[in-house]
Design a protein around this nucleic acid. Structure first.
Lengths: 350, 350
DNA sequence: CGCATCGATGAGAGCGGTCCCACCCCGGAG
DNA sequence: CTCCGGGGTGGGACCGCTCTCATCGATGCG
């Protein structure tokens, strides 16, 4: 306690240099705190001389504004949360998450904004997350991997915190802005691709049905089959992970004879399915054609390389970040979602 | 500006509820701000009645301390940075990174600490990162994926910011605390495993040589070969990614005849290598045995499943988080690194 | 030549906490 | 009975910043 007194006080610890304050910058520049502050924040109504003096002082001292002090008065924190409702490795190891991180960080690189990773846990922890978001600790939030029951949508809706979902949120008290890929159309196109390649008994490994991506891709698969008057019975759920994809493939092979095409709602699940097929000695695409969804690196390195649907997560997340910045600035004109297209990326598996 | 005046002032915007302040909690509890503060922070010298009243008021109001205000006076921020020196997908998509995230978040879940993701970019951006770390915006930092030339070690050394590296740092002005897996021994054991399985011409796909993990695993490979009086000539560098692993495998097959074993310094690179081998019609482990490093999910889902070295990243990172907490609390007794063992995980590729 | 205007400036009041300090009141010791 | 000690309390000074407001000189205009 005694060791860390401010310069305004008396002593300061020998080894620990304290961060320079605006006061010191002002003194060095020979201006008042007010002028220094103005010069640093955009320089309205600051004479060129004063500006130059302040700039020089800032550079010499290595000054960075104290965010806490600034935040206290501006009521902005210059930080946004990336909210992940699931704690486990399921989300974090998914390349989709990495893509989100990459896109967001790209959106914020030109700004002062820091990214806070908020891993929302269940139960009591969730309350804390809600409270954290509600009580002004961040200027906004991006939510990824949102599930139906994680209650995040309603918390955010009533908090009025600027926020953007990556992936369509469930219905909320007020409509929430989001970015997403067209999962329904993606699922349909993927299935149509299998049909065009000659498949007639087409199964799907669906994603979790408490996530929009899971439901919509499944709906697309179903629609394509109905349009082609093919059976839509061979459906097994997975959870987007490779292991669940493998398990699902096993169950499909047991329960349904004659499957010649599989639409997996994620590349990870498709990869799991491929390994099962390989183990059973089934050739891909010879015996069974497989198409995935995401195209985020995994697809290119499976054996055989996976035909899949593109999912522009990085770009989408970058847009999500920009939309969030707009919301924070109060410049949002429309809360319409931004939907991106998914294209078939043909490799070897279908 | 006019819309957001405090209750101490006069009006406040209709829709936007402001976060409750300590003042309001105190008033509701019928005590002073000081007492309320004491009750909230551990409750020394607070009567049971006062404590109960404050607790009740906190619950009713949904009060959370304003971090900015607290931080301003305590000079703590209750946040730590996870520093990633590379901006690109290379790091973020690596399961190693996901593991780090998971371990750290586990270490901090019981605390108030928030994790700030700091993606350090090159050049000018790097300066900003350094300044950010130096000027007290975070209480500490964990550095992952550190390269020789990213200058992070020296910045951190002179800043005296509590920090822990995940993965051995390069020499710095002062010794830095770190956690790591025993890469040297891991490389050696992996290679010895290949030798024990009968391989005689053993190549390696090394990691980046500006990272300790790259150098040390390579050294282990070399030592094992020298001990067995085998050639250590077949070495190609990768960058830990799957694509680089594939490219490296191509080069190895071109330049060196008769390779019957490959030690890849990461599972991702091993997976890339496997796909090349499959494409060439070489059987694994029949013609060539392959062993990887990391065992973080990828290994189990390659074809064939990959024999590899375990790398307890999650656990390691959790420890890194705890060590950081100790440093921040000033309770660090020893800056000794914490080294974890890597074990052979036998699957099918070797 | 006097007056309004305007750009540039500094003084000062907070923002919401923490913590030092003075104070009060009680019990136990002298 | 007085004095001391200490637990419990409230007052108030900050932390470093932003922003309003008053001031002031230089300018433009009637």
């Amino acid at each position: 306690m005694t060791a860390d007194l401010r310069p305004g006080g008396t002593l300061s610890a020998p080894g620990v240099p304290h961060a320079p304050t605006l006061e010191e910058v002002a003194e060095r520049a020979g201006v008042s705190r007010s002028t220094a502050s103005r010069a640093i924040n955009g320089g309205l109504k600051v004479s060129p001389e004063a500006q130059a003096a302040v700039d020089a002082a800032v550079a010499e001292l290595g000054y960075t504004p104290n965010r806490a002090a600034r935040s206290l008065v501006t009521r902005r924190t210059d930080s946004v949360a990336l909210v992940v409702p699931e704690p486990d490795e399921k989300v974090l190891t998914d390349p989709y998450f990495a893509g989100t991180l990459q896109g967001l960080s790209a959106a914020f690189v030109q700004t002062e904004i820091q990214l806070i990773l908020l891993i929302a846990r269940k139960g009591e922890e969730a309350q804390r997350t809600g409270r954290y978001l509600r009580n002004g600790h961040v200027d906004g939030a991006v939510i990824v991997s949102h599930h139906r029951d994680d209650a995040l949508d309603s918390v955010l809706a009533e908090s009025r915190l600027p926020c953007v979902f990556v992936g369509r949120p469930w219905s909320a008290p007020r409509p929430m802005q989001y970015v997403d890929v067209n999962n329904y159309l993606g699922g349909r196109r993927a299935t149509e691709h299998l049909i065009a390649r000659g498949c007639r008994t087409i199964a799907t490994i669906a994603g979790p049905l408490d996530m929009a991506a899971g439901v919509d891709r499944l709906a697309g698969w179903r629609q394509a089959l109905q349009d082609a008057r093919l059976s839509d019975e061979a459906m097994v759920r997975g959870d987007f992970t490779s292991a669940s994809g493998a398990a699902a493939m096993e169950r499909l092979l047991e329960a349904h004879a004659g499957i010649d095409g599989v639409f997996a709602a994620s590349d990870l699940m498709a990869a799991g399915a491929l390994s099962v097929l390989a183990k059973r000695g089934l050739s891909v695409p010879g015996d069974i054609k497989v198409i995935g969804f995401d195209d985020l690196g995994v697809a290119a390195s499976t054996a055989p390389p996976l035909t899949t649907m593109s999912n522009p997560v990085v770009e989408m997340s970058r847009v999500a970040g920009e939309l969030l910045l707009e919301q924070i600035a109060g410049q949002t004109t429309s809360f319409e979602p931004r939907i991106f297209g998914a294209e078939v990326v043909v490799r070897e598996s279908a």
